[in-house]
Design a protein around this nucleic acid. Structure first.
Lengths: 205, 205
DNA sequence: TTAGATTTGTTAAAAATTTAACAGCTATTT
DNA sequence: AAATAGCTGTTAAATTTTTAACAAATCTAA
């Protein structure tokens, strides 16, 4: 399949979660407009995305929820799953771990890192926290390919260097300080304050 | 000024933060390509955004940092500032409060809400936590216009109803369950798992 | 069995966003 | 003072993303 548009990939993840919810409620089929309502996007967009991933629904019955979840999995998930580290065991790091806890996605947080002795060598919801000094070692041992940076902003950039050196493939930066892209490392930034300021701006008008 | 593109608004917020950093380092002027490098976008995009907000730099000296910060402020900030509530005092809620703590933006978190007695009637970094029952009362008293939802997903939707009823103007939903839009309420969604799955997808390829 | 109502799949059009191209200043160098 | 180099501001082109439009398929009901 040719490369999917970025925005479609983002939505696939949402579709799957929504579909799982519906499945849990006992539904077996769903219409494009139902998905659309749940995610407040348009039905056309849903159908188009579904077309792009090469799935087909049944006319007048809609899409088979299980099949679609399955298919999205083959697209979004890697076979072995992606193994993730959270760096920074503050509130945000913990929030991530809590979020992922007991969700059975192919994404798995397999380690946390911090420099605070109070946090090190303890588990938080099954995720063990190591001293940051052990980063490289554990990354190899646990085959970690993605890192979430949830540290104070000033350490983000040197950390990214270390991660790259140690062979990271993707970084999700939740720090307000943007990182410069590194060759061969997929970088996604998210800035909580920007989200807020955006809301604030549109509230004004 | 006519309505700015959404994406530009998002970037203005980032520009300002970056400019503040540079100002703190003693710089007084900055070129478009410098801003661009710091945020890893293109210089053209920076110049275009700056054009859209009606600012001009000096040729061969670049943009005056202070002036630009000032101007972005007049666009992004409201005069009185926006007063914000965090709902849900879990890790994520705390992360938000911590993030905003002592940042002198016009955005101010003025209250938190929860239902857990251990959290209620205490302050976390100067933000007082009320029982959720007092939501409407406090919202009016403190003139809150934006709410960040950081609760467990299942309560998000009824909560949004209450918020709307109480006159909220904007909602930032950090719950994985998407909310349906409500008339007159600006809604911004952010799903941490989607961010992660996006990274995971692009790491694969 | 014909008409009507739904709902999908897809192509085409529209809108939003990003990138390119380049003219026009201003400082600097020769 | 003429040539050069560096940057800005802006219009135009390209790309990406969303929305519209509609034919085709399937069920329902008269």
């Amino acid at each position: 399949m040719k490369r999917l548009p970025d925005k479609t990939v983002e939505r696939l993840s949402q579709y799957r979660r929504t579909l799982n919810n519906q499945l849990a409620k006992g539904k077996t089929h769903i219409f494009s407009h139902e998905i659309a309502n749940l995610l407040h996007i348009t039905p056309v967009q849903v159908r188009r995305d579904i077309m792009l991933i090469g799935y087909s629904g049944t006319l007048r019955k809609g899409y088979d929820i299980s099949e679609m979840i399955e298919l999205i999995g083959t697209i979004i998930d890697t076979d072995q799953g992606v193994r993730i580290a959270v760096i920074g065991m503050g509130n945000l790091g913990k929030a991530f771990i809590h979020y992922m806890y007991e969700k059975r996605t192919k994404l798995k947080i397999v380690a946390a890192f911090d420099v605070n002795p109070d946090k090190i060598d303890k588990s938080y919801e099954d995720v063990y926290c190591y001293h940051l000094d052990k980063l490289e070692e554990i990354m190899i041992e646990k085959e970690i390919s993605v890192a979430i940076i949830a540290t104070p902003p000033e350490v983000a950039s040197p950390l990214a260097d270390r991660l790259k050196e140690a062979g990271i493939r993707g970084i999700l930066n939740y720090t307000p300080r943007p990182l410069s892209p590194r060759e061969g490392v997929y970088l996604e930034e998210h800035d909580m304050i920007t989200s807020l300021e955006k809301v604030a701006y549109f509230v004004k008008n």
